[in-house]
Design a protein around this nucleic acid. Structure first.
Lengths: 189, 189
DNA sequence: ATTAAATGAGTGAGCAATCAATCGAAAGGA
DNA sequence: TCCTTTCGATTGATTGCTCACTCATTTAAT
């Protein structure tokens, strides 16, 4: 081995891509990403062979960070309400604390550049959460489609909640609470 | 006047743009749109001076069609439940009947190419619906922010519902119903 | 000394928008 | 009814630009 790849540079590329995708969407130019990461245009492609690879890995890394934030200290033995509440609060708090990642994530999730493979890998990272939904919140337990419906609802409703928090940051407690009330009243078993 | 502009061609451009924006997003090339509309590349720009103008007018026309679909036969004198139910059913039915328009609408609504002006014009088309929300479903009547929260929730929840219907078209009645249940249980006064 | 990372000018493809040339619908005159 | 003039609609090649990606060369870690 001559020179090893730098984990630091890889992270800088992902960080720069997050910021640019959050602000200008997936049309962010690779040359802009490279400039912001402090590397030459060509170097980006030794870390990510294509722009699509970069976007897919970025999406996976953000989603994984979110899943970890949610599942840390997850109260496995508590009741359905507490566990649902835990997930909701963690989700909304993460979004409020990482607005750039959240915005980038939303841009990427509607993009057709994210592959089936990546979406499958993301689902794997959210497996525990999906299981919780299937077992507890799905109207018909063991019904995959119903669980997917509830899972999509959490994402959609937390996005709306986070948009409102972004518009009025001082009201985070109010929106986190009323968002949860709407969700819980809507889907509780 | 020499030759008048053709309303037919204008409609063909909007139709072609709807289909392409629905499938490939706002990055759809104007030359592709022109080809699909059956006109020369340059002709598109005599009907819409820029691509942004085209996208903005497209967004407004789709949203207006949706508003009209919702407000036709609106039961002004019925109770809150009936009126909310009416809007929900119309919204979901319209989306299920016009999947291409709905997909294009979603692409456009997250695009930064839609101007403040256009969004204001869209709000105007939805004025009656917004008023209904403010007066009936907002937790604190006369609270604009709370009404915006509920309005965004309807859109987000109907999008999720329509995604599920698109995946399982035979279950439209089931999803329309359970989507409404979640919404109504969540936000009812 | 070796070898792969790093560089940045270069390449070719694709894009929105332009424009000189052509076409054809309307209005007026016979 | 037919012909002519008018003038904007229509055309598609062209323009200038941006982009993802390449590659010959340089640099530096082992």
């Amino acid at each position: 081995m001559a020179r090893p790849l730098s984990e630091e540079k890889r992270a800088a590329i992902l960080r720069a891509a997050t910021e640019l995708v959050a602000t200008v969407g997936t049309s962010a130019a690779t040359s802009q990403i490279a400039k912001r990461a402090g590397i030459a245009d060509g170097t980006l492609f030794t870390y990510f062979p294509t722009k699509d690879d970069l976007l897919n890995q970025l999406y996976l890394s953000i989603k994984s960070a979110l899943a970890e934030a949610i599942m840390t200290d997850y109260p496995s033995r508590a009741g359905v309400f507490e566990r649902t509440r835990h997930c909701w609060d963690r989700l909304v708090n993460w979004g409020a604390e990482h607005p750039t990642q959240h915005k980038a994530m939303r841009q990427l999730s509607v993009s057709d550049r994210i592959s089936r493979n990546t979406r499958d890998a993301v689902n794997l990272a959210f497996q525990d959460i999906n299981t919780m939904i299937r077992d507890n919140l799905s109207r018909d337990a063991a019904d995959d489609e119903s669980a997917a419906f509830v899972g999509a609802l959490i994402t959609a409703m937390s996005d709306v909640t986070l948009d409102c928090i972004a518009a009025h940051p001082e009201k985070i407690d109010l929106y986190r609470e009323s968002g949860f009330q709407v969700f819980w009243n809507g889907v509780r078993p």
